[in-house]
Simulated assay, not measured.
Amino acid sequence: MDNMIKVGMADLNICVTPDAITTLGLGSCVGIVLYDPRKKIAGLVHVMLPDSTKIINNENKAKFADTGIDLLIKKMCDIGANSNSLIAKIAGGAQMFAFGSNSEMMRIGERNVEATKIKLKQLGIRIMAEDTGANYGRTIEFYPETGELHIKSVGKERKIL
Rank of each mutant, 00 (worst) to 15 (best):
D2H: 08
D2G: 11
N3M: 12
I5Y: 05
I5S: 01
K6Q: 12
K6C: 06
V7R: 14
G8Y: 09
A10G: 14
D11V: 10
N13G: 15
I14V: 15
C15K: 12
C15N: 11
D19M: 07
D19R: 01
I21G: 12
I21T: 11
T22C: 02
T23V: 12
T23I: 02
L26N: 09
L26R: 05
G27A: 08
S28N: 12
V30Q: 00
V30K: 08
G31E: 01
I32K: 05
I32E: 09
V33P: 00
V33N: 00
P37L: 01
P37K: 02
R38Q: 07
K39S: 09
K40R: 00
I41T: 11
I41Q: 09
I41Y: 02
A42H: 10
G43K: 05
G43A: 04
H46A: 06
H46L: 02
V47M: 06
V47E: 08
L49N: 01
L49T: 00
P50F: 15
P50A: 14
D51V: 00
I55L: 06
I55F: 10
I55A: 02
N57Y: 09
N58A: 13
E59N: 12
N60W: 04
A62P: 07
A65C: 08
D66E: 13
T67A: 03
D70E: 09
L71E: 15
I73E: 04
M76H: 09
I79C: 07
A81V: 06
A81T: 05
A81K: 04
N82W: 02
S83L: 04
S83A: 11
S85P: 04
S85V: 03
A88W: 06
A88Y: 13
A88N: 12
I90N: 02
G92I: 04
G92K: 00
G92F: 09
Q95K: 15
M96T: 10
M96A: 03
F97Y: 13
N102A: 11
S103L: 11
M105Y: 15
R107N: 10
G109Q: 15
N112E: 07
N112L: 03
V113F: 11
V113M: 08
E114D: 06
T116W: 02
K117A: 15
K117G: 14
I118H: 07
K119D: 05
K119P: 01
L120N: 05
L120C: 08
Q122N: 10
G124S: 03
R126P: 11
R126I: 08
R126W: 01
I127Q: 13
M128W: 05
D131V: 06
T132D: 08
T132E: 12
A134E: 09
N135C: 13
N135P: 13
Y136M: 06
G137R: 09
R138M: 04
T139A: 04
I140Y: 09
Y143L: 05
P144Y: 13
T146Y: 06
G147H: 14
E148D: 03
E148C: 06
S153D: 05
V154L: 10
E157N: 14
R158Y: 07
R158W: 05
K159C: 06
I160H: 10
I160D: 03
L161N: 15
